[in-house]
């Protein structure tokens, strides 16, 4: 019942947004702003002639590698940072600086150090994705209710059992929200890398179609990457639900 209703609301909001886009494109707001329907037909054309598939095969490489590294190491370091005050002191500042750093200014340095290949692009994705994952995980671990940890100790939990059976489940909702934020930032990083380092994949479609004023194709590429990101984040949410069913039930110790 409620799931139908929320699906209906999602469809309704999509229709409203796309309708507004179509109208804005027809007015037109700007010469370089295509209508929704033009964009969709460009998307269909790009998909059918295989351009899109080739582009994603390229874009997904740094994205997948970078997001995987960020998730694994980000959660690992975050757990460590949250558990040990000394580690927190040592590492948290690095990630806070990383989060605040203007990425575009760092890209020339990365290119000098690692060239224009995959490595630099993976770095860009990691710099975007990792800090929020580390910082969220660390904060979540630190905020585990101390009464639950104490309960674990009183019932003879070993240190590793406290981490696995108390701290991680308690922290999982915030860890996952960090993961979602990190992944969306990783998408931004992947596209940014393709726009700023070497035009490949989806970034290449955007750059190239802009240079020949094929705005519907440019918007189609942007639209497709947003759609892809949203679908992927939904998948992560599904994963969270399967792994930690019901962990976000809220705390009941008033």
């Amino acid at each position: 019942m409620t799931s139908y209703r929320s699906l209906f609301l999602k469809l309704l909001s999509a229709v409203l947004v796309f309708g507004a886009w179509e109208i804005a494109g027809r007015i037109p707001v700007s010469y370089s702003f295509p209508t929704f329907l033009d964009t969709m037909s460009a998307l269909a054309a790009l998909t059918l002639d295989g351009t899109m598939l080739r582009a994603y095969a390229e874009t997904l490489q740094p994205l997948a590698v970078g997001v995987t590294i960020s998730a694994v190491f980000g959660i690992g370091i975050g757990l460590w940072v949250g558990l040990s005050a000394r580690f927190d002191w040592l590492f948290s500042p690095i990630f806070i600086v990383m989060q605040a750093a203007p990425l575009a200014a760092l890209i020339p340095l990365l290119v000098m150090a690692y060239g224009i290949g995959l490595t630099s692009k993976v770095f860009v994705v990691c710099i975007m994705a990792m800090p929020v994952i580390v910082l969220n995980t660390g904060a979540a671990v630190r905020n585990t209710p101390s009464s639950l940890k104490e309960m674990g100790k009183a019932f003879l939990a070993r240190e590793d059992q406290i981490i696995l059976k108390v701290i991680i489940p308690a922290a999982s909702p915030v860890i996952f929200s960090g993961l979602r934020l990190g992944i969306s930032a990783g998408f931004i990083g992947a596209i940014l890398a393709e726009l700023k380092i070497t035009p490949t994949g989806v970034g290449d479609i955007i750059t190239y179609s802009r240079s020949i004023a094929d705005y519907p194709s440019m918007y189609a590429a942007i639209f497709s990457i947003i759609l892809f990101a949203v679908l992927f984040l939904n998948l992560v949410e599904r994963l969270e639900f399967i792994l930690f069913k019901g962990n976000n039930r809220g705390y009941v110790s008033d």
């Binding site: 639950l148 039930r249 009941v252 110790s253």
Partner: peptide, 8 residues
């Protein structure tokens, strides 16, 4: 005193 039950 505060029960300390695992909410999940």
């Amino acid at each position: 005193q505060d029960f300390a039950l695992l909410p999940w």
